[in-house]
């Protein structure tokens, strides 16, 4: 059972300290209710700490469909815990999780009909109208993930966009660096740690698209930290030039 929960936690993108507490599946109705809460604090070497605040019911939201099932996420957590940054939760009084709201908003913006959306997701037209009304009055914030899907990856901060001599984000040199085909001398701790993480994940990526996204993390890092990466950039450029030749 725990393995099933772990798989579902991955699909819902739940991370520690959140965990699935219970799952109720209606096979015939193709519907699944998931109760999410905070995991019990782990003790360190047997040391006992104070118990956390009592958990209360925080809300229930319709989430994205998974494997043909309609998912409902119910969250039970202390009232002091902020939920607003989790895609699998929704705004109070709203029917959808943030991820679902973002998906529906995008489809509406692209001109997909209300009827089509309702058929596709198995949602009630009245709830879509509630979402539309909320968007018009801006009481629902569109998911940043949705925005990220459309926006170019330019990194953060003033260095973004100003990267003379830096290979473009889609240059194959980033994939070769991520895959370990290029070895460079690195003098910056953060790049050493990032590259170790990226390489361990890159090997396990199931397809080229996933690997491309992983390689773009390295481009983003270089854009953000270009000022301290002169020696590393020089080696990368030399490698890119060798590849072109």
């Amino acid at each position: 059972m725990r393995t099933d929960h772990q798989l579902l936690e991955q699909l819902l993108e739940l991370h520690e300290p959140w965990e699935i507490r219970a799952v109720r599946t209606d096979i015939h109705g193709r519907r699944c209710e998931v109760e999410v809460g905070l995991a019990a604090p782990r003790t360190w070497f047997g040391l006992v700490r104070k118990p956390s605040a009592p958990a209360v019911e925080r809300g229930e939201w319709r989430h994205l469909n998974l494997a043909g099932f309609r998912y409902v996420v119910r969250v039970v957590a202390p009232a002091s815990v902020s939920l607003e940054r989790y895609e699998w939760t929704g705004e109070p009084e709203q029917p959808f999780t943030r991820a679902m709201s973002a998906r529906l908003t995008r489809l509406l913006a692209e001109g997909v009909s209300l009827e089509g959306i309702c058929r596709l997701f198995g949602v009630d037209p009245g709830e879509i109208w509630r979402l539309k009304r909320s968007l018009e009055t801006r009481s629902v914030r569109v998911s940043p993930l949705d925005a990220a899907g459309a926006a170019p990856d330019t990194g953060a901060g003033p260095a973004a966009g100003a990267a003379p001599g830096l290979p473009e984000a889609d240059d194959p040199v980033w994939g070769r660096l991520a895959g370990g085909d290029i070895s460079i001398d690195i003098g910056v701790l953060s790049l050493k740690l990032l590259l170790t993480r990226v390489r361990s994940q890159y090997e396990a990526m199931p397809d080229d698209e996933s690997r491309r996204l992983k390689a773009r993390e390295l481009h983003r890092f270089f854009v953000k930290n270009l000022r301290m990466l002169g020696a590393e950039l020089q080696q990368l450029r030399a490698s890119a030039l060798r590849e072109e030749a």
Binding site: H15, E16, G155, A156, S190, L191, L194, R197, R220, N225
Partner: peptide, 10 residues
């Protein structure tokens, strides 16, 4: 979990 936090190392 820190190595997988959003914006870690950036």
């Amino acid at each position: 979990n820190a190595p997988n936090y959003e914006d870690m190392y950036l």
